[in-house]
Nucleic acid binder design. Structure first.
Lengths: 215, 215
DNA sequence: TAGATTGTTAATCGATTAACAATC
DNA sequence: TAGATTGTTAATCGATTAACAATC
């Protein structure tokens, strides 16, 4: 099924976009879509769309287009989002609690099972039905609850320390919302959401002198 | 000062990273750094670093390296982050309040001046000293307070509607935290932080079958 | 001066676009 | 069948790396 060509990061990011877009479309009756139409709607060239889809399999029908259900299933399969990923949040501050309050992740198969903190005032509280637990329970909780993703929402002075704890506990995926980058072994995957980088990029785009650019 | 070569998006993203990195370094006494050393620390090739820096100006000293202060100042200047950008948040829900509670943006010159919502229960409340205001006050508030960035934190069913309101009010930069993409005129710049895209990318990276990839 | 490191051009590598034969 | 659109190869474009002369 999968070719041994490696798939570029840009393709992966677009695949997540297609998936999201198709999800929105799903409600409507259209069950077949051409690369031309999808490209028109999403602002991506049809050629690139076909390259992207063909990178992960062959599921178009020549002369017709792509079946939306198949497309969604295949992309989902490829990205590994057709199975459950249990998550925990490290740091039950504002951001950690906000993520716990958001039900969108659970809906797509990424439920948050627990929040971890060291602040005794928080421990025992429940956010959206999710308990805040003492950090020293982490190891057993990860094992007992089949956790595979840790979400980092702590201040930068303890980010690396918390990372190391997660890695030691056997976590293989870290979603890093902290302000700094982290070091992990090769077999641990990291995806960072860095607010500063994003805000500074916006600042650049708005900077009068440079008025070209498309995102 | 600026060449008319357009600067690629990848270079911009790296420039924001350098800036952030240099900020952390600033505390220490090292005032000069070579592309080799910086590259070693950040995992970026020295050659690429020099290309990036030269894209926005010439401020290295041959035989020595780059002065950290100059570097920070020049990159900041280029990204437009050496001046104040007043921001407002649209949607005073969990995420909007969390962003308002975070002081990091104000510290780097991006203060949040107001939160907007339509929920009467929220209006009048203060989050971290920032007032929640009725949406119908938006236009005058933007003018009176010199706002140039709107942060979108609303549910997807009203995202485009809120975008249009911001655009009509003359906002030129939108930081979009909502779940879907938005349409704006060419002169309005958008930077999106899409949690789903990010989470799905992490999912892919962890997907056993495909164990190559570096972020 | 000798050593080091930049600035910059050339070479390579990778990603996007164009084109078209295959085929539904 | 004719028309449409995929799958895929070739051409182009852009980004990264290598190399080295310039110079501090």
């Amino acid at each position: 099924m999968e070719k041994d060509k490696t798939i570029s990061n840009t393709t992966i990011r677009r695949l997540t976009k297609y998936y999201r877009y198709i999800e929105e479309l799903d409600l409507k009756e259209t069950s077949i879509i051409s690369s031309y139409t999808l490209g028109k709607m999403m602002g991506i060239s049809p050629s690139l769309i076909r390259q992207d889809f063909n990178a992960i399999g062959e599921f178009g029908r020549q002369g017709h287009g792509y079946n939306l259900d198949t497309l969604k299933k295949e992309i989902g399969e490829f990205l590994g989002i057709n199975k459950i990923h249990n998550m925990i949040v490290i740091g039950a501050g504002n951001l950690g609690q906000t993520l716990a309050n958001y039900d969108g992740f659970a809906k797509v198969g990424f439920p948050i099972k627990g929040l971890f903190d060291i602040n005794p005032k928080l421990i025992g509280m429940k956010i959206n039905g999710i308990e805040i637990i003492d950090l020293d329970q982490l190891n057993s909780f990860i094992k007992d609850n089949n956790i595979d993703i840790g979400i980092l929402c702590v201040r930068k002075h303890c980010v690396q320390q918390m990372t190391d704890i997660l890695v030691d506990a056997g976590i293989k995926g870290i979603w890093n919302f902290s302000a700094i980058d982290i070091d992990v072994p090769d077999d641990v995957k990291v995806e960072s959401v860095n607010f500063s980088n994003s805000l500074f990029t916006l600042s650049y785009l708005m900077n009068d002198k440079y008025t070209n650019q498309k995102s």
